[in-house]
């Protein structure tokens, strides 16, 4: 785990340091942002630095079937209970800023999100990386009895903040590193309220319509923020592998992922699926963009 942490931070710092490269003084030509670093704002369970053009409305359906660990008995989770779905919408009111809302089957969450691309990678490398921020606030919509005695509305709230640094490498690949902070106002006994995580994900281009996706998010065991003497109920890393298909108006992603839900803070704190044990789910995402300009 320590090695993973070191590796993730090294990549993050490496990508960030590339942004500090000295720009020649005579670089006064207009340096435009790279075209299509990603085709979608989503990469399996993660956010990308990509935000569609201003006044774009996005509709998306995310679905995960049941756990695959029963194998062929339930056709690798397709007939298994515990399928999850999220229906969401996003809108881009300002250049590089997106707001969104989504409804989840897991814990009946409603999420309100904001994504902003602070820096866009440019073609002449004046800005060698894209830097994005993603944050959300979610409301747990279950019956109030679930939260126990002394219930207040704020017990339902959870928050997520993530910094994403990404780079497109020619037409071959786009890679992102991220670090995030998750917080739940109320959690079950024995669980931490906060979690810091790091992640690496990317997209490898196959051709103009197809790409391979990968993701790995690692919740960290940090003594400095844990509320317990020992790490119990430690969440597992969320590992995923997918296939992206872009058509004229849609983006489809078919993937396997070791997390249950679609809410990032839920995955960072509560993921009990071990990828190595085959505790993975088959899922898909469909997104459709509509332009209002």
């Amino acid at each position: 785990m320590k090695n993973l942490l070191t590796l993730a931070f090294t990549i993050l710092i490496g990508l960030a340091s590339m942004a500090q490269e000295v720009v020649p003084e005579n670089t006064i030509e207009k340096d435009l942002p790279v075209s299509e670093p990603f085709l979608s704002g989503l990469l399996v369970d993660n956010q990308t630095t990509f935000i569609p053009v201003k006044k774009t409305f996005e509709f998306m359906i995310q679905h995960k079937f049941g756990n695959m660990d029963n194998g062929i008995k339930d056709v690798f989770g397709i007939y298994a209970p515990g399928a999850f779905i999220r229906t969401g919408v996003n809108y881009v009111p300002l250049k590089n800023m997106q707001v969104g809302y989504g409804l989840h089957l897991v814990r009946m969450y409603s999420d309100f999100s904001l994504k902003y691309t602070l820096l866009e990678q440019t073609r002449k490398n004046r800005i060698p990386v894209a830097v994005g921020f993603y944050g959300n606030m979610a409301i747990d919509g279950r019956e109030k009895e679930v939260f126990g005695t002394g219930y207040t509305f704020s017990d339902r709230l959870s928050y997520f903040a993530q910094l994403i640094v990404g780079r497109k490498f020619g037409e071959v690949a786009s890679i992102q590193a991220n670090t995030s902070f998750s917080h739940f106002n109320a959690t079950e006994l024995g669980m931490d309220h906060d979690k810091i995580a790091v992640g690496l994900n990317g997209r490898i281009t196959v051709n103009y319509k197809h790409a391979i996706l990968f993701q790995c998010d690692v919740p960290l065991e940090l003594n400095s923020i844990t509320e317990h003497r020992e790490f119990t109920n430690t969440p597992y890393a969320n590992i995923g592998l997918g296939w992206e298909i872009r058509t004229s108006a849609h983006v489809f992603q078919l993937y396997i992922s070791s997390s249950d839900g679609f809410l990032p803070q839920h995955n960072m704190l509560f993921n009990r699926n071990d990828f190595r044990e085959g505790q993975i789910r088959f899922g898909f995402t469909i997104t459709r963009l509509y332009n209002f300009f």
Binding site: S35, Y208, K209, S248
Partner: peptide
């Protein structure tokens, strides 16, 4: 010429069918 890939990508995505 720097837009060749953008043209190629969009042509293949929207026009080829």
């Amino acid at each position: 010429a720097s837009l060749k890939m953008i043209g190629l990508r969009n042509f293949n995505r929207h026009c080829v069918s």
